[in-house]
Design a protein around this nucleic acid. Structure first.
Lengths: 330, 330
DNA sequence: TTGAAAGCGCTAACAC
DNA sequence: GTGTTAGCGCTTTCAA
């Protein structure tokens, strides 16, 4: 593989000039620059990234550590991040932490080792790894979930409010016993959505009961079990707030198996819109989160912090939108 | 940020010993090794990746370039690749080429520059970039679509056969005028699925007609348009073979808008299974591709090729499975 | 505007 | 079993 010296030899200049020419520095004679570019093309020269990063002490790469590649909410964030990062010449590497603090930690180590310019992550629980980022002075921003122990830039959705609105919507539609299927305790979005649900019940002067609440992993299987459990009680709920998209699949499956029709028998509102939500019968009412915008905003904040790590941390809160379809109507 | 010499100083040994100890070489006194590890921990030492990669002339990283992060088929492949790569200590970086040959090319350049150990990609059309990989001797394997010009390792699905079986299934269910909504011309899977569809028609001695075939991007909007177009003809199809998951959403939307019920009015079989396929009314008949296995197999081939680039190229073809649900029954 | 040369942090060949 | 040292390919002073 040709190196910068091969290019220099072929163009009849020094390696310094090649470096300057190829990096678009203004201080190089246009004629020489052209000769260098030509030599580079002829040789099929590809700069050696590790050598460059070693010298520069930083790679033009941002790491995006998300908790589930198969969740459309996170892939939409990824697109947002990519679009902004690419505009300014940064590459994005996607890492899938799979909701495991250990994998997250491992990816943070890799990011640190590779000397990436910054990290965007959706933290899985109390993140020990993040402390290392802070200690090393690597720029980072949290998305979807805050980092309780650290004050960094954060991009959130006002998910508590959104959950309250969704619940209020179910109340307004005349449902009497509204239940909630949310994520694991300790996962901030799961707790917030539950809190919002309770807010709305309290506002409407309804009794809240732990008998109407179930938690599980943010996955279909857990939610399926939770829903079956809830609905086979003596006094089952007549409506359900479901805390994410994958869980909605599990809940709807359970309803199907138990012969309960969404809307008529059990009102359903789920977090996260999906292209297939409209195709269901009845179509699924959802709380749509601005995932792509979370990504673009996070990327902008990260770039700002890479440029200046002393700027005060910010909290950006975006709103969610209730999309009222038929599954929340009797 | 502490370097290897800091660790060496603190442990009272040379940098060579630190390197050996931290890389688990057997030739180092256990007691020294322990001292080194301790010193490293105390300092919070993180090896400098670029320096290591520069020296080793290769990074323990494989790049996975997929054509659509938002397509569950590709994210499932990604999981397969990750699981195998991590077993042997390789990291995986995911790149989203977005079906654009230009972005694909760009990511191949980055992979080359970063000196990754290997590349797995689902090629978007005739890939100029791949020639560079071959020229540089970087290991690579293609998934989902072959590389016509290059003989490399490839992991494919026998998608033509699967399409033929799906079409035969529709014929067996008594549908008379079966149409096909497939991807862009030149995209191998799109062409193969169309060819399989025609195979089945021919086998059944049915006339094939271009009036029953539409092509679009592998996206919902294009498929929606295609379906509306097909179904508003004087002699519309009474069944449809749809070439991927996102397209199925578009087609089903169109059916809904036109007041045609899947199955009873228009039989539907779509490629790629999805968790929501069972939730539809009627549930969607699909051709399930072994995406996760494609990923694991591709990763294994890549690792073998990294170890020995002279091994003869292989073609691995996996089978798909028709999951018969109600959308393909009257 | 250009070139010579130092040095980023690590690994491995070589010497002991 | 351990240390010394060269050098991976690049960028960036510094000097001319």
């Amino acid at each position: 593989m040709p190196t910068i010296s091969d290019v220099a030899a072929r163009a009849g200049v020094s390696t310094a000039t090649v470096s300057r020419a190829l990096n678009g520095k203004a201080t190089v004679d246009p004629e020489l620059a052209a000769r260098v570019r030509q030599a580079a093309t002829e040789l099929g020269y590809q700069p050696n990234g590790p050598a460059r990063n070693l010298r520069r002490q930083e790679a033009a790469v941002v790491a995006l550590i998300i908790s589930d590649v198969e969740n459309p909410f996170f892939t939409a964030i990824a697109r947002g991040v990519e679009d902004i990062a690419h505009e300014v010449g940064y590459s994005v590497v996607l890492c899938n932490s799979d909701e495991s603090a250990e994998k997250e930690n491992r990816y943070i180590d890799i990011a640190l080792q590779e000397r990436v310019a910054g990290v965007i992550l959706s933290p899985s629980g109390p993140a020990a790894g993040v402390a290392k980022l802070a200690a090393r002075g690597t720029a980072y921003v949290a998305v979807d979930r805050p980092l309780p122990e650290h004050d960094s830039d954060v991009v959130l959705v006002d998910t508590r409010l959104a959950a309250a609105q969704a619940t209020a919507h179910l109340i307004a539609q005349g449902y009497e016993r509204i239940g909630c299927v949310t994520g694991p305790a300790g996962v901030r979005t799961a707790d917030d959505r539950l809190a919002g649900y309770r807010d709305a019940l309290r506002t409407a002067k309804r009794r809240t009961s732990t008998r109407l609440v179930r938690r599980s992993e943010y996955k279909a299987v857990g939610a399926h079990r939770a829903a079956v459990d809830l609905l086979s009680q003596p006094e089952p709920p007549d409506a359900l707030l479901v805390a994410n998209n994958a869980m909605a699949v599990g809940v709807l499956q359970a309803l199907q198996e138990l012969g309960r029709r969404p809307g008529r028998d059990v009102g359903v509102v789920a977090f996260d819109d999906a292209p297939w939500a409209e195709l269901l019968d009845p179509p699924l009412t959802v709380v749509a989160q601005p995932a792509y915008e979370i990504g673009t905003e996070a990327a902008r904040l990260l770039l700002a912090r890479i440029a200046d790590n002393t700027r005060p941390p910010t909290v950006t809160t975006l709103g969610a939108r209730l999309i009222d379809r038929a599954s929340s109507h009797r």
